[in-house]
Amino acid sequence: MEEFENKFAQIASLLGDKSRSVMLWCLLDGRAYTAFELSICANISAQSASNHLKKLIQANILLVEKQGRHRYYRYATSEVAQVIESMAGLVSINDEYTRTKQPERNGITYARTCYDHLAGKIGVKITDALLDNGMVEIVERTYIVTSTGKSWFQNVGIDIDDVMSQKRSFAHPCLDWSERRHHLAGALGASFLTMMLQNDWIRRKKGSREILVTGKGKLELKTKLNLEI
């Protein structure tokens, strides 16, 4: 038990450092970055960033991949990314914050990537629509695709059998830190985000985790899920 407590304390200490926490936050857009790029995000030197990243790799929080002369850093697993994103839910959002900082229609709290799936108000609304329309059901903190849902996903270009064959969580609820409700995560959530990007329902905002919903996307969501955006 003491060994576990010591390891937990080490992880908490790693995440508690401001520079490391900023770099981890930047990596939540699902892309891999170099130490130099992450140093700019954290406003520290490239050497300092490399030292921080080395510790995160040793703790199995990040992985590094070499490509040519460059080394790219990313999350070790999607589950680790989910833990980091969920930590934002500990930030207090009081009445005054709500009154003075309502989410902008195209702000990061409205629509953003949560590592490899869609989050924010739009992510929650789509998840609710999938549930309300009987495409998925929630069973013991896991989303189950119904027979109707399987056909629906097939029609939008997502093969459920193929998604289920991936060696990761298929579909689970992820607590949205800005909405304080759940959105769809896991392999299905990642496939849904990819489909929406490929079909121009949504677009990434350059240099940000923010997602922009296109006119086509609004029409498709209304047609396919009766969802007003």
Rank of each mutant, 00 (worst) to 15 (best):
N155G: 04
S147T: 15
M135P: 04
K167P: 10
I144M: 08
S169V: 15
K125R: 11
V156Q: 06
K167C: 10
C174K: 08
Q166S: 10
T142L: 13
D159R: 14
I160A: 06
N155L: 09
G123K: 02
R141T: 03
Q154N: 15
M164A: 13
I158C: 07
W152L: 01
D132S: 11
M164P: 07
V124T: 08
L131R: 00
T127F: 00
G123T: 01
L131N: 05
S147F: 08
D128R: 11
T146E: 13
I158S: 04
P173I: 03
V124E: 02
K167W: 14
Q154S: 15
D161C: 12
D161R: 08
N155Y: 09
A171Y: 01
I126D: 11
F170W: 02
W152N: 01
A129V: 07
I126N: 00
I158P: 06
D161G: 09
C174P: 00
M164K: 08
K150R: 15
D132V: 05
V139P: 01
T148V: 11
D128K: 06
I126T: 09
T148I: 10
D132I: 06
G134T: 05
V163L: 05
D176G: 04
V139Q: 09
I158R: 08
A171F: 01
G157W: 04
V163R: 03
G134M: 09
C174R: 14
G149D: 01
Q166N: 13
K125F: 00
G149S: 05
D162Q: 12
F170A: 10
V145A: 12
H172F: 15
N155T: 05
S165I: 09
P173F: 01
V136I: 15
S165Q: 12
K125I: 02
I160V: 14
K150E: 12
V163K: 13
E140R: 10
T148H: 15
R168D: 14
I158D: 07
V124F: 07
M164G: 00
